[in-house]
Amino acid sequence: MRLTVLDGEEPQILRVDEPRIDSSVAIQFKDAVRAAVSPQASRVVLDLGAVEFIDSSGLGAIVAAMKGMGEGQRLDLAVLTPMVDRVFRLTRMDTIFVIHDTLEAARRGAGH
């Protein structure tokens, strides 16, 4: 599971360098996010632009990562590809997360 830290803080941006977040990587994904999140950042953005496929295990891992954030920290999502966007909308998880269309919007903090 490869994650790249793009921006340090405010917001911290973590790019997921994997085409799939599925049951074979869900646990590693959750652990990798937990290890990468800066305790200083109040807002962390997961850049999902490279992720072409997510299943319910992957969705659960993103929820788990969000629940594992520190006090006063928030996890946003950015750049959902069509398939990933569809899974978030079908499960209504798009109502739980702030989702940014672009990284620029994520840096500004403007979500939908």
């Binding site: 299943d55 295990s57 659960g60 929820v63 629940k67 499960t91």
Partner: peptide, 8 residues
């Protein structure tokens, strides 16, 4: 309490 499973 958000669910991490049960979406399948």
């Amino acid at each position: 309490d958000l669910p991490e499973g049960g979406f399948g």
